[in-house]
C-alpha cells in the first residue's frame, strides 16, 4: 500500500487544460449540430462506442482519452456499455458490410435525443477502404452522422475537441 501511495504522490496531477474549441475548430470538425439539442447534454454525456470495421488505430486513441492527461470524465463524458444508456454514438472505421446491421441496430436501440459522431478518416470518408464488396464506406452511408472528427487516427486532442463541441461545451 505504501509503495502505491508513494508512487501516486510522486506522479502528481498530470491532467491538462482542455483544448480551446474556437469557431474555426468547430468549422473544421464539420459541425452541423442543432444547438438546442446539444445544450440538453451539457454536463453529462454518455457515449456508446462501436467499432464498425476499424483497423483498431482509432480505438487506441479513444482509449487515450481516459488517460490522466486528457481525463475525459471530468467533462461529464463517459463511455457506457449499452446503447440504451447512451446519448451519443461514437463510430470508428469504415462500416464493414458484416457490421452494417449491428451498427443500425445499435443506433436504433439508443433513446432520443441522440447524436452520432464519426471518428477517424475511415468513418468520415471511407478512408483507404472506401466502398467495396466488404465495406459500406463512410458511416454516413449507414446512419445519419451529426459530427465528424477527421484524422487517421484523430489525436486525443482532436477527439476531445470534437466531442466537447458536439455537446456544446464551449469552455
Amino acid at each position: 500500500m505504501l509503495r502505491i501511495l508513494r508512487q501516486i504522490g510522486r506522479t502528481g496531477v498530470l491532467t491538462e487544460a482542455p483544448p480551446a474549441t474556437d469557431d474555426a475548430a468547430l468549422e473544421a470538425a464539420g459541425i452541423e449540430l442543432r444547438r438546442t439539442l446539444s445544450s440538453r447534454f451539457r454536463g453529462s454525456f454518455a457515449i456508446r462506442h462501436v467499432d464498425a470495421g476499424s483497423c483498431n488505430g482509432c480505438e487506441l486513441e479513444i482509449h487515450a482519452l481516459n488517460n490522466p492527461y486528457y481525463d475525459l470524465e471530468r467533462f461529464g463524458v463517459h463511455f457506457v456499455a449499452s446503447p440504451r444508456h447512451a446519448d451519443g454514438l461514437l463510430i470508428t472505421g469504415p462500416v464493414s458490410r458484416h457490421m452494417e446491421t449491428a451498427l443500425r441496430r445499435t443506433w436504433r436501440a439508443m433513446p432520443a435525443p441522440k447524436i452520432a459522431i464519426s471518428a477517424g478518416e475511415c468513418a468520415c470518408t471511407g478512408g483507404m477502404f472506401g466502398v467495396s464488396y466488404a465495406s459500406c464506406g463512410r458511416a454516413d452511408n449507414v446512419i445519419p452522422i451529426d459530427v465528424r472528427i477527421p484524422g487517421c487516427p484523430p489525436t486525443p486532442t482532436r477527439l476531445l475537441q470534437g466531442i466537447l463541441a458536439a455537446i456544446g461545451d464551449q469552455r
Binding site: G53, G57, Y133
Partner: peptide
C-alpha cells in the same frame, strides 16, 4: 465482422499505397 476486403483492394495498387494499406491491417 471487420473483414474489409484488404486482400482484394490491394490488387492493382502501387508499392507506396500498399505500404500504407499494410500499415492499416492492424493499427496497433
Amino acid at each position: 465482422y471487420v473483414h474489409k476486403g484488404i486482400e482484394k483492394i490491394a490488387v492493382g495498387t502501387e508499392p507506396a499505397a500498399l505500404a500504407r494499406l499494410a500499415g492499416r491491417v492492424s493499427g496497433d
